[in-house]
C-alpha cells in the first residue's frame, strides 16, 4: 500500500504543481469578468445607469453616449437569470442607481447561459462576481473552468505578446465584435434562436426566465428604480426569419410591464429605420457607428422621459 501511495504521489505531484502554477498565472490575467465585477464592487454607490444583458447590449450600448454615470455590465451569453442574480448581489449597494437598462431580444426569454454553448463561462460568475448558485468545484478555478489551451493562449498573449486580454473599455463597453456576413448570419442566428412553447424543455426554461424577469421588475419597483427594456436593432436578414409568436412573447411582456408600471419603459429599436447595413457587424450586433446611433437615440429617450 505504501508503495502504491508513494508512486501515485510521485506520478501526480508534477501534474499538481504545474496545475497550481498555471492557476496562479490565469488568476493574474486582467479579464473582462474581473474588471466588470471589480467595477461593480467599487463603483456601485456612484453608478446612475446600469446596463445588463448579453452581447447585444455589450457591443451596442456605449455608456459614454448616454450622458450619465452609466456602466455596461452586459457580457457574452449573459442571460436574464444571470442579470437577475447580478442585480440581487450588487443592486442593494447601488444607492445612486436611477435607471436600469435590460435588453430584451428574440432569444432572451428562452436562453439561459447554463444551457448554451457558452455555459463554460459560468464559472466566472462564481469566481469573480460571487453569485449564489449551484457551483461545482471546477467553478472555483480558472484552469478547470474553461479550455486549458485557450487559457494558456491568453496567458501567452498577455505576458509574451503584450496583447491586452480585455475586450471591454473602462465603462464595460465591448471594444471588438467580429464582423460576419449579414445575410448568412441573419438566417443562421434566427434559426438558432427560434424556440417553441410546444416543447416542454423550452416552456420550462421560458417560465423560469419569465419569473427572473418578474423578479427584476419587482426589485426595481421596490427600490424605485426606473426600468427600461430595450430591444437593440437587428438586420433585416434576421428580422424576416423570426417567428411572430416568439417576437410577441418578449415584446408583449415588455409592453405589458410598461403599461402596468409608471417607472417601466419599453423602447423597441429592432427595426428602426435609422440603422443601415454599415451599422451592423453581424445581423444582431451593432458596429461602432451603429452603437453611436443607438447611444444617441437612448440619450434622447432618457432625456425626454427625464430619467
Amino acid at each position: 500500500m505504501k508503495k502504491f501511495l508513494s508512486k501515485s504521489i510521485v506520478l501526480f505531484l508534477p501534474v499538481l504543481i504545474l496545475a497550481v502554477l498555471a492557476e496562479l498565472v490565469m488568476r493574474k490575467l486582467p479579464t473582462d469578468y474581473k474588471a466588470k465585477s471589480d467595477y461593480l464592487k467599487t463603483h456601485s454607490a456612484s453608478t446612475e445607469v446600469l446596463i445588463l444583458g448579453s452581447s447585444h447590449a455589450l457591443f451596442s450600448i456605449n455608456p459614454q453616449d448616454l450622458g450619465r454615470k452609466a456602466y455596461n455590465a452586459a457580457y457574452l451569453g449573459q442571460s436574464l437569470d444571470y442579470d437577475a442574480r447580478i442585480l440581487a448581489k450588487y443592486g442593494g449597494r447601488m444607492t445612486a442607481l436611477n435607471t436600469l437598462i435590460v435588453p430584451l431580444s428574440y432569444p432572451s426569454m428562452f436562453e439561459s447561459m447554463d444551457h448554451m454553448s457558452l455555459s463554460w463561462r459560468r464559472y466566472n460568475y462564481n469566481l469573480y462576481y460571487g453569485l449564489e448558485g449551484h457551483w461545482g468545484l471546477a467553478d472555483y478555478s480558472e484552469l478547470l473552468g474553461k479550455d486549458v489551451l485557450k487559457q494558456l493562449g491568453s496567458a501567452f498573449s498577455y505576458h509574451v505578446l503584450s496583447d491586452p486580454v480585455r475586450r471591454t473599455d473602462s465603462l464595460g463597453w465591448g471594444l471588438r465584435s467580429y464582423p460576419k456576413d449579414l445575410w448568412k448570419s441573419g438566417k443562421a442566428s434566427a434559426e438558432g434562436h427560434t424556440r417553441t412553447l410546444d416543447n416542454a424543455e423550452h416552456l420550462e426554461r421560458h417560465l423560469q426566465l419569465k419569473s427572473d424577469l418578474d423578479g427584476i421588475v419587482a426589485w426595481c419597483r421596490l427600490h424605485e428604480v426606473n426600468l427600461v427594456f430595450v430591444t437593440t436593432p437587428a438586420f433585416v436578414s434576421y428580422r424576416q426569419e423570426l417567428s411572430p409568436e416568439q417576437v410577441e412573447l418578449f415584446t408583449g411582456y415588455a409592453m405589458e410591464q410598461a403599461e402596468k408600471n409608471a417607472q417601466c419603459y419599453y423602447w423597441n429599436f429592432m427595426d428602426h429605420p435609422l440603422f443601415t447595413e454599415s451599422d451592423f457587424s453581424d445581423a444582431t450586433h451593432l458596429s461602432v457607428p451603429g452603437s453611436q446611433k443607438l447611444g444617441a437615440l437612448l440619450k434622447d429617450s432618457l432625456d425626454h422621459y427625464q430619467l
Binding site: D81, A84, A88, G91, D114, G133, H134, L209, D212, G215
Partner: peptide, 13 residues
C-alpha cells in the same frame, strides 16, 4: 423580490 432560491432552478444539477 429577488431571492436565492429562484436561481437554483435555472442551474444545471
Amino acid at each position: 423580490m429577488l431571492r436565492f432560491d429562484i436561481y437554483i432552478r435555472g442551474t444545471k444539477p
